[in-house]
Amino acid sequence: MGTVSESIIQIQHLTKTFGTGESAVHALEDINLDIRQGEIFGIIGLSGAGKSTLVRCMNLLERPTSGHVIVDGKDMTTLSEKELRLARRDVTMIFQSFNLLMQRTCLKNVCFPMELTGVSAPAARKRALELLDLVGLADKADAYPGQLSGGQKQRVAIARALATNPKVLLCDEATSALDPTTTLSILALLKNLNETLGVTVVIITHQMSVIEEICSRVAILDGGVVAEQGDVQEIFSNPKTDAARQLVYPGGIRAEQVPPSSRAIRISFNGGTVYQPLIASLAIDCGVKANILGADTRNINGHAFGTMLLSLPQEPAEAARAIGYLRSQPNLTIEEVEYHA
């Protein structure tokens, strides 16, 4: 991770409304975010949560209805059009659809933003070749976008976004059109650029796997408001809102799954290093056999997060022994789950 220090983006009481009167759509309401210089910050939510509107407000491609967007000390909402064009060089963007110019070679695509800012052709070419090398495509300078794979197109788009030496790279669903292996390679590239260039990266996504792969902090959007925000590990270990729980535990960890007349507990894994032997240990150490009704666990940087739903024996002494044993284990939170028809 790049060196993280003071804020690079501050979003203060940002609201965005489309339309007026009864047909008005409130896309964003009272958004407050603080993104630190040098970090990889994630913004996640389901479709319609307002993610793309928010990221477009960050560089004023979409003008907020009210509120402030402060980037590197400048309030973007107060800038003139000329000042805004200059400020946008510091806040560049990559998209799900790549947005490359199909009639231009990869080299010419990367040169394009430098042409717009008056960089000489030789200097632009030299810088573009350096950037293509940086993203692993030095051999594709003369190729056209139509000759590239999706992952290669996104690498060219990243090189183009870096052409103005930005301080912030906004990634709007940048891996959504890519297969899982290619997604991992693009995320690894973004992480490397964050570490080597110090560029702040803002990831907009609906995929929790993207957040857990490279983000340090995350904000969860739900219906145009920030439902929850904080360190990724903290939110994974203890999601406090329904929106967060829906994203963190999408795989069947609900009380409705508990069969009638069963006694069940939900175990939350809060960052321990091992969770697989837990059920076996329960049987060996306590002589209690438990059934797994559902589980959604994941490994983040070698630590276990997620939940498991267990059905316990009906015999009260056995169940109490199991609960006592589990509560004595480190990095676990235990709660009983009641069945609701």
Rank of each mutant, 00 (worst) to 15 (best):
T15P: 02
T182M: 13
G230E: 01
S261M: 15
A227I: 04
Q147P: 01
I35G: 01
L129W: 01
I70T: 14
P250S: 10
G251E: 12
G38D: 05
E130Y: 04
E6K: 12
S149Y: 07
P330L: 10
L184W: 13
A138D: 03
R36C: 06
E315K: 15
Q246C: 12
R36T: 07
T297V: 15
V258H: 04
F305D: 00
L61T: 07
S209G: 10
S176C: 00
S268W: 11
T183R: 15
V135W: 00
V168H: 06
Q154K: 12
A159F: 01
A24N: 07
L54F: 07
I158W: 03
L79Y: 12
V202Q: 04
L116Q: 14
I253G: 15
A244R: 09
C57M: 07
A304W: 07
E173W: 06
G230F: 09
G48V: 09
M308Q: 08
D142E: 13
I43E: 08
S328Y: 00
A244I: 07
T175D: 00
T200W: 02
P250M: 05
M58D: 08
P277A: 00
I94T: 04
V25F: 14
S120I: 04
N32P: 07
K167N: 06
M1C: 02
S5C: 12
I43R: 08
T164L: 15
G223C: 10
S262F: 14
M114L: 15
L79V: 11
L193I: 14
G45I: 04
E39C: 06
K126W: 10
T181D: 09
G50L: 00
L84V: 06
K16P: 08
S66C: 11
T20D: 14
E173S: 07
A124R: 06
T196M: 06
R125S: 11
L332I: 15
E115W: 03
L293S: 01
I211C: 05
S176R: 08
D172W: 11
D242K: 10
V91Q: 02
N59M: 09
L132Q: 05
A219I: 05
L61Y: 07
A264W: 05
L189I: 10
S185F: 03
D172L: 14
P330V: 14
R155G: 01
L169A: 09
L309Q: 06
V69G: 06
D72F: 09
A255P: 02
A161G: 12
R85G: 03
L61E: 05
L190H: 10
L278N: 07
N238D: 14
E318D: 13
P166M: 04
M93I: 13
S281E: 13
V199Y: 04
V55R: 03
L132K: 08
G67P: 11
V156G: 00
E62T: 11
S311A: 15
C57I: 02
R89E: 08
R263T: 14
I94E: 00
M114Q: 14
V201A: 12
T333G: 12
S328M: 12
T92C: 05
F269Q: 10
I44L: 10
T196W: 08
A124C: 06
I43C: 09
M93S: 01
R127Y: 04
T297Q: 13
L312V: 03
S23Y: 13
A255L: 01
S97L: 11
L137H: 10
C111R: 11
A27V: 12
L310W: 09
L278C: 11
I265K: 04
R89I: 05
N109Y: 09
Q37L: 09
